[in-house]
Design a protein around this nucleic acid. Sequence first.
DNA 1: ACTAACAAACAGACCGGTTGGTATGTTGGG
DNA 2: CCCAACATACCAACCGGTCTGTTTGTTAGT
Lengths: 187, 187
Amino acid sequence: MNVNTKSLMIDTATILFQQKGYKSVGLSEILRACNVTKGALYHHFPNGKEELLIACLQALNEEIMTDIEGIFRAHALSKEAIQAIIEKLIHNLETDGTITGYTFSSIVSEMATVSEPVRHACSALYENIQHIYCEKLVTEGFSNESASDIAWLMTASIEGAMMLCLTQKSTDPLKMIARRLPLLLRA
Amino acid sequence: MNVNTKSLMIDTATILFQQKGYKSVGLSEILRACNVTKGALYHHFPNGKEELLIACLQALNEEIMTDIEGIFRAHALSKEAIQAIIEKLIHNLETDGTITGYTFSSIVSEMATVSEPVRHACSALYENIQHIYCEKLVTEGFSNESASDIAWLMTASIEGAMMLCLTQKSTDPLKMIARRLPLLLRA
DNA sequence: ACTAACAAACAGACCGGTTGGTATGTTGGG
DNA sequence: CCCAACATACCAACCGGTCTGTTTGTTAGT
């Protein structure tokens, strides 16, 4: 049996979408990459490419959540946790050379104004990430309001730094973020 | 005479590229939007779509630079200037509903790993923006190193906040950035 | 002053390739 | 026997790009 085929397509497409964006990746490219035919794709995703994208975003959501939650469980202070997260991003970027993990700006910027379902999926993802940061900050004594602000600022700056790393072909922007963000963590 | 045709194409394409990304925008769409034919496009840009994109990025570069420089000239403190910049972005977002101005993540994430010339153009743009922030911060007494870091953090967080605004269909992320970034501006 | 020559600035038909999507098989386990 | 799980042939639409006109303003020769 192949319950695997569906998740194989999702895994493969997720990587491609993150790296190249939505429109840039053709169905044939995805299919070729995971050795699956069109019939299988439209069997599991009757609404085609966009349904596959949303499935990717949902899978990415779960993956990111468990990942970040694990890091936060391993580090007592949010200052340390956020640094560990950024270091992981840097590591990924250095080994793979492209975006992997928590960033999906490519999809956001292309699709947010075009497809509402996709926008919602992206929105949920960002909100989840921010929520984890925020919760941790509150337990460390920050007020609800400032915790929320700081958590959003973290989410935003990591996402932006990712873009800068791509253009600079360097991990320096992320390293700078890692250096400066902790300064925000004082009431 | 039509020296205008060329810049008309650049202006039109810039908006479309910023809003939808590179691959999502077809030549025919650009041509239709500014009522120009294919012959004219390939007359002014013999290397086609990508050459047009690079011309757009260069034009955007100049526009952004004069714009930001103007704002920095109008505001004594960089704290005020950065706030004015963000407010302008918020205003644009509220009136146009889509990305305008300083953000071009869509192009970065799609093209940075694919086309070196495009990556260079994007890189130059970010570096120019960061440079202005950085210079101003140095005149206010920051050390070269911390000024550079803070300037990069600003650039990144504004870019990231733009992404968040798009997904949330709200200007709140930018407003939060505007509230929290000034806290970084203390030696 | 008239015109031939030329090139810049388009216009529009045309092209091969690719796109997402569909319709019709085929196959294998329950 | 049947249906989920594919495979494959096929399709119109569109893609970026090229090609060959056509118009128009400028220049050069007589």
